[in-house]
Simulated assay, not measured.
Amino acid sequence: MLIFLKRVLTQALVVTSFTISTVGWAASDILVGIYPGLSEYSTLEESFFAYPVAVTPIDDDGVLTPKIIKGKLAHSVFVGSDQDNTLEVYQSFYDALSNGGFELVFTCSNSECGGDLVYELVGKSSIASAYAEVRQSGPVNTDFHYLVARQKQADNPAWLSYFIYKYRGNKLYLAQDVVTPKAIATKQVDIKIAFDEIDQSGRVILDGLYFATDSDALQPTSSPALKDISAYLKRHPKRQFFVVGHTDSQGSFSHNQSLSERRANAVVSALVTDYGVPSTMLAARGVGPLSPKASNLSEAGRSHNRRVELVPAN
């Protein structure tokens, strides 16, 4: 049986017909479940976070393509004993969510997840330390269950995910994440690309181009940079350029090479179709992780390596 707690009476998610007890925890706005016998170990709240959920297993190349939910994150870790059974905990949440107005988006257990799912989802994020107890001391191979659910019939449906894990007979840990989608408030930022670097170093990084995670879909916030790039190109109509995509080294080489080329093509397509740049001026190429600007051993370095450059062809 699950006992459900309500943190703030802003949004009521009735997940089960079991008794609901109300407590006055601040900052979260959703009904969440506590499994009897587990105690709260740690909590974390982010007012806005790009939270990844798995919707498929990790593939044979070790690549995970998660769905990114952007919004308010309420993260809690609960701990039990070495006598608690991960399957019983998992099945209790599975049943309660199935019967309580949630769509079960994805579940997996142990090796069917395709690898160390906790690490692939959050191990490289800014809140990785909040999951240290869940990951414990090694890859997730045994006694591991993962569940993602999405609220049905709501104007702004919340997402719930659960990592339920016991490593080599140690205590059971459960990480429960509740994400309430919301848009982040943004302000217009002027992007000034240093085009004079082309004649000095033979290339220029096209700052201000933004893509969806692991995708070649250009985001609307890329418009100021695309306008700036098109203006530069139109001032040099007799020149030709390569638009070169780069990635970090996470994942397989074939995946990264393909992604880098698709992103370069997306930039060329936008410049030609939306900004009237002659197609004869541009050729798209992708080099994946082959030309890094910084070390791929840190997220800061990887962020510098994910880029698009303009390189003169003549």
Score class of each variant (00 low, 15 high):
S222H: 02
A313E: 09
D59Y: 10
Y119A: 03
S295H: 12
I58H: 06
A270K: 08
T22N: 11
R150P: 03
S92W: 04
L13D: 15
T142G: 02
L233K: 01
T56I: 06
K182Y: 05
V89D: 00
S109K: 15
Y210G: 02
D82Y: 13
R262L: 10
A130I: 02
L87Q: 11
G251N: 11
I68K: 00
S28H: 04
R307P: 02
Q136C: 06
I184T: 07
D95G: 09
D248H: 10
A26D: 14
P139F: 10
D29L: 04
S291W: 12
S201E: 12
V267N: 00
S269A: 10
D143F: 06
H145F: 12
Y51T: 08
T247W: 13
L206Y: 05
V140Y: 09
L297G: 03
L297Y: 15
Q250P: 03
E88M: 08
I30Y: 09
P66Q: 03
N141Y: 10
F163V: 08
K70S: 14
G245F: 13
E46Y: 01
L174C: 04
L160C: 04
K182T: 09
G37N: 08
K6M: 15
L174Y: 01
T107V: 08
Q240K: 01
N141D: 12
Y173D: 01
E197T: 02
L290W: 09
Y119V: 05
V8M: 10
S222E: 01
L310H: 01
A12E: 15
D190F: 01
L310Y: 03
Y94S: 11
S92Q: 12
A231V: 09
A128D: 13
L282G: 00
C113N: 09
S125K: 13
P312H: 01
E309R: 00
K152V: 05
T56E: 14
D82K: 14
I229V: 07
S254I: 05
H236F: 06
I127E: 11
D214L: 12
Q250H: 14
G251D: 07
I34K: 15
D177H: 09
E88K: 13
V179Y: 03
L206C: 02
Y119M: 04
K192M: 04
K67Q: 13
K234M: 03
V179Q: 01
K238S: 09
A264K: 00
Y232E: 03
I198T: 07
A266R: 07
T273K: 10
V63L: 11
P66W: 08
Q136Y: 12
